[in-house]
Design a protein around this nucleic acid. Structure first.
Length: 360
DNA sequence: AAAGCGGGGGG
DNA sequence: CCCCCAGCTTT
């Protein structure tokens, strides 16, 4: 309340910033997104899915997820494997593991109801300061500031804020601004307006400044700096890694191995990873107690992560029918026609779907 | 091919 | 606390 206006930042001329956004939202914002309810469970689910992921991508996942987990109770009671299976393809799978933990925490700590206080929300797994504010504003009308990528971009341009928003100093300045600009009322509309303005007008490339309600006060537009703000992340070289994966097939099923709970593709089902120098047939025979009848390379795949590039080299391994697998913990023979139900990362899904198409 | 997108956890 | 990590889509 009554936060002091940040130093060196000029207020918007005439109509205040928040008023402009709220007025704009009523006519030009999005009002028909499937999670625009006051149901905190649905709001929370959407906000977690929307972390690092755009609206259009989220919509089908959101629908399929709610179909399987219609209530907080059903989600909390489900095995984490089922949660990961419905998350498969969305990426950042720690979000799904935290989502599941969070559902259980809300059941035990809060009696099955999400708290309205953003501070309490932010103590739950997977919910940080911005997500907590969004959930409480949308679900309960709480007066709390968000600061997501859209807001950072709008602020950086509108107020001419230099510096990469990932650095502590710039981020602190943006949070101060977010708090100072927060309106007294209609915070839910204001919050949606910031997201919608950033997603539909003040986009990264080709922003539509001609339609922007902030145009007459926008520092970046005035100074011809729209294209250079916000300041981009400093570039860094990404290392390359190589991985060999065994595609062990028998009787129309493939052997999947659950990955360790943390790290890349944590908790997901994947293909067994071959050691760099191992002889494929020998390693598969020893590791799984299977009799290998044939090994053949499959087309490789280049998969780009933010911090490294992974070259996947899959090898098709045929084994004698009727062989059982030794050390069955975390291992599953998965029918190729049931891949839709598997908790697979996208590149592994690609490899297996190509194989399924090839073998019919 | 490069950049964008919130939060968790380790050093 | 700061730095690194994670996976997909869009441009």
């Amino acid at each position: 309340m009554n936060k002091s206006w940040p130093a060196g930042i000029a207020p918007f001329p005439g109509t205040p910033f928040a008023r402009r956004l709220i007025d704009w939202q009523r006519h030009h914002g999005r009002h028909d997104l499937p999670w625009q309810t006051r149901d905190a469970y649905r709001v929370w689910l959407s906000e977690i899915m929307l972390q690092q992921t755009q609206v259009e991508t989220v919509i089908p996942y959101y629908a399929r997820f709610l179909e399987r987990f219609p209530t907080l109770e059903s989600l909390a009671a489900a095995p984490v494997e089922d949660v990961l299976a419905r998350w498969s393809g969305l990426g950042y799978y720690a979000r799904a593991r935290n989502l599941h933990k969070c559902a259980q925490a809300v059941m035990t700590r809060h009696g099955g109801t999400f708290p309205a206080d953003p501070t309490l929300l932010a103590e739950l797994p997977g919910i940080g300061r911005s997500t907590a504010a969004a959930i409480s504003a949308f679900s309960y009308g709480t007066r709390a500031a968000i600061l997501d990528g859209n807001v950072k971009r709008v602020f950086a341009r509108a107020f001419g804020i230099d510096g990469f928003p990932g650095t502590k100093a710039v981020e602190n300045a943006l949070w101060d601004l977010a708090e100072a600009l927060l309106p007294e009322r209609d915070v839910d509309i204001y919050t949606q307006a910031q997201m919608d303005l950033g997603a539909t007008l003040c986009t990264r490339g080709k922003p539509r400044c001609g339609q922007c309600p902030l145009a007459d006060g926008c520092v970046a537009l005035r100074d011809g700096r729209v294209a250079e703000l916000p300041t981009p992340r400093p570039k860094k070289a990404v290392p390359e890694r190589h991985g060999r994966f065994a595609v062990i097939v028998a009787n129309g099923a493939v052997l999947l191995e659950r990955r360790p709970p943390a790290g890349i593709w944590g908790g997901l089902q994947s293909l067994p990873e071959l050691p760099e120098d191992a002889d494929t047939a020998e390693w598969v025979a020893r590791r799984f107690g299977l009799t290998v009848t044939r090994v053949a390379p499959l087309p490789g795949l280049r998969h780009v992560f933010t911090h490294f590039v992974l070259h996947l080299a899959p090898e098709r391994v045929e084994v004698a029918a009727g062989d059982g697998v030794r050390d069955a913990d975390g291992l599953d023979w998965w029918p190729l026609d049931a891949l839709a139900d598997a908790a697979l990362p996208t590149p592994v899904r690609k490899v297996l779907e190509a194989l399924q198409r090839a073998t019919g």
